[in-house]
């Protein structure tokens, strides 16, 4: 088996070989093939959007995906929930000396696969190799460019108002649970598959058909954190019905064993959409075509507190706030 060596990163012959023999053939991008110092491309739109994100995940191959897929989906989703159509992506790699080249190949291939699925082109890249111990395997940074095709329909935080409903695109917590399950010896990894997926298709269809006030993809910190960010920015409170939040039995079982709360588990292929009550059914119809677990979980209320509330079947209205410590109990 071949491994990444220091020389792969020194800008010399080996670097050249790695780029030309590994990255370029896989990414197969016209722009990238030119090998210029900058990539020049067209975006036929008045408004374009940019987002950037770095991906570090352990293990980098997990059930339902790998770090490569994640790095494409994460950036595609950030563009999509902003109401943009993702077009181009750049990718930058930091690789630890000794990293298996075969693994790198797999990761790069899966980036290409999901870039194709999402309909984006990879247009620039960079690779650095760092000394053993300076990074944990492989880090990937991606930057995405999207165009705004329906300016009047661009979701924005200002559009959120009382009585609107909150929809979620599928069951929550799978990605986080999947990653946790890899650090256990329980056989849970057989069952829990990450939800990592590009969301631009479903979002596109949603935007084509209805007016969406706001969308957010659920990443680190899960549903609870995403809702809190919205509540803060939009100056509203959000009420969530505990019974309605879709969570798979496996995720529940893992949470029970590890003492975790699924509201805080990461997702990588789920988003929430805030829509008017009147558009709710149409929206759900579309969401359910892509994931039958999609459903309405709560509503918006204009209040001063800017909090997220969880209505429980008994036990009062729980506060679902942002946490500093994922695993530390408050009980004394």
């Amino acid at each position: 088996m071949k491994f990444i060596q220091k020389e792969h990163g020194n800008g010399g012959k080996q670097t050249y070989e790695l780029i030309n023999e590994l990255f370029k053939p896989i990414f197969d991008s016209e722009i990238l093939k030119r090998g210029d110092d900058s990539s020049i491309f067209d975006l036929a739109s008045n408004k374009i959007g940019v987002t950037t994100d770095s991906f570090v995940v352990k293990p980098y191959f997990f059930r339902g995906g790998d770090i490569g897929k994640l790095s494409i989906c994460g950036t595609v989703n950030d563009l999509a929930v902003s109401g943009l159509v993702p077009k181009y992506i750049t990718a930058s790699f930091i690789i630890e000396e000794g990293f298996p080249i075969e693994d790198l190949q797999k990761i790069v291939r899966s980036m290409k696969e999901y870039a194709d699925i999402a309909g984006v082109q990879i247009i620039a890249g960079d690779t650095k190799v760092v000394e053993k111990g300076s990074c944990d395997g492989i880090f990937i940074n991606t930057t995405g460019f999207g165009v705004c095709e329906r300016e009047e329909k661009l979701p924005s935080i200002e559009k959120i108002k009382g009585k609107q409903v909150v929809l979620v695109s599928g069951d929550i917590g799978r990605h986080g649970a999947c990653i946790y399950s890899h650090s256990t010896e329980l056989g849970f990894e057989e069952k829990i598959e990450s939800d990592c997926a590009p969301l631009n298709k479903v979002i596109n269809e949603l935007l084509e058909n209805i007016e969406v006030s706001y969308m957010k993809d659920l990443t680190r910190g899960g549903l609870a954190t995403a809702l809190n960010e919205i509540a803060q920015k939009a100056n509203v409170s959000i009420y969530v019905e505990e019974d309605r939040v879709p969570v798979s039995d496996q995720v529940k079982a893992l949470c029970s064993i590890l003492g975790l709360d699924w509201y805080y588990l990461a997702c990588e292929g789920r988003f929430i959409a805030i829509v008017d009550e009147k558009d709710k059914n149409k929206a759900l119809e579309i969401l359910k075509k892509y994931n039958k677990e999609a459903c309405e979980i709560g509503w918006i209320e204009n209040t001063e507190e800017k909090r997220v509330y969880l209505n429980t079947s008994f036990g009062g209205t729980r506060i679902l706030d942002m946490l500093y410590y994922e695993m530390l109990p408050r009980i004394c």
Binding site: S183, T184, E185, L186, I257, L258, M327, L328
Partner: peptide, 16 residues
């Protein structure tokens, strides 16, 4: 089963 699982996990998983 649950107790056994939890206990087994404690070997690899970093509980607080």
């Amino acid at each position: 089963k649950v107790l056994q699982q939890v206990s087994k996990i404690a070997k690899t998983f970093n509980f607080p």
